[in-house]
Design a protein around this nucleic acid. Structure first.
Lengths: 204, 204
DNA sequence: AGGGTAACAGACTTATAGGTCTGTTTATAG
DNA sequence: CTATAAACAGACCTATAAGTCTGTTACCCT
């Protein structure tokens, strides 16, 4: 009984620091030993729990990465009214977290997408699934915003979602260079500016 | 006399296919042998011309990468009137090129920034220099647009530039997943939408 | 024409990284 | 308490990749 728990605990431990180091150094630039060293674990332990480096990474994507993106970028918007303000607040919040990281490595998801594109279609699918969920959720929120009178009925929800995701991925990529505060401020300013165009306007 | 030319030609050859493969597979995932194999050249040739893999990569960044970004994203806007339309056309053009690549690997510059962030400050500087040139050029174009009566005087040029670069980096990252046509269409649509807000409005 | 050097070939060295395998510890069941 | 299997340790194997070094070819200069 307790064995199962211990097993899960160890796997979680390895996955957690695995994601951390993969995020910092990239998949190809990280060795299994790098992760094991951090945990003071042995090769035997690792390969007892995971079949290979690739299978290990996929398990991280499905478990930790998805939840990470979901809790920070999807859940805060889901089901809420006034989607535009919610999205802006959610993005601002996520960027604030990034800004206060001493050394920021960008948006985890897009980093991996960049790294695996054209190299590993299998992993790419798992990563793009997360993107899809995000996009669908944004579109749903925008559509709901229309019926609730927050979003102009003439806007193309899918196009807006694409544009939002693009800009977010981009600003997170730019923020790695350091002056995150300025970038965040400018970005949110323009985002809110952009939202003025697509929000519902009361007929005068 | 001719020696010098031959030297330059060979170096160019190695650099060109080097950039190609680094772009496709990433820096850490490409070996010198991968490049040499493509060229049917030997280790001796490579290390005769370049000191190390890193120095080789930096030479590529300074020579080829800068020119690539410059000619496709900076030069078409430089000095032109009506900056907003020019920028939209320029972006659309760049995205069209990407769209028609059978297998797209994203925006070269941001790919490398993602890969080297936190790992090699030296290389990062060279990469960010290119970004800086791009940003400065966009800001200049927007400012000029103000005096020429194309851009609203109240817009924050630097914030707009940041926003533009972000969205472009993001859309290029997204386009790797395949349906580039739809993404490009949606993106440009929203971009032009956004531009309506910051363009100069004639007082009624 | 031939000596000398630039340009290149390719075997070799060394380090690292993914993965295997055998042995040892630990914990639970009977 | 002990047999047994899970959980882990760590030496080992093998492949690859960066970089070195010696030898060879090609071209220029006098």
């Amino acid at each position: 009984m307790d064995k199962q728990l211990k097993r899960m605990a160890t796997m979680q431990r390895i996955q957690t620091t695995g994601l951390e180091i993969f995020y910092q150094k990239g998949y190809h630039n990280t060795s299994i030993d790098d992760i094991l060293k951090e945990l003071s674990l042995s090769k035997g332990a690792f390969y007892y729990h995971f079949q290979s480096k690739e299978e290990f990474f996929i398990s991280i994507v499905q478990n930790l990465l998805f939840r990470k993106v979901y809790s920070s970028l999807i859940e805060p918007i889901e089901g809420e009214e006034d989607p535009l303000n919610k999205i802006a607040a959610c993005f601002d919040n996520a960027l604030e977290t990034a800004e206060h990281n001493f050394l920021d490595y960008g948006f985890v998801l897009s980093n991996f997408i960049t790294e695996f594109n054209g190299k590993n279609p299998d992993i790419m699918n798992y990563l793009q699934d997360i993107l899809k969920v995000w996009e669908v959720n944004l579109v749903t929120a925008l559509q709901k915003g229309k019926t609730d009178g927050y979003v102009n009925r003439h806007v193309d929800s899918e196009a807006v979602a694409t544009y939002l995701i693009s800009s977010y991925i981009g600003i997170r990529t730019l923020m790695v260079e350091g002056n995150g505060k300025m970038l965040r401020y400018n970005y949110i300013q323009q985002l809110r500016h952009y939202f003025k165009l697509i929000e519902h306007k009361e007929p005068a």
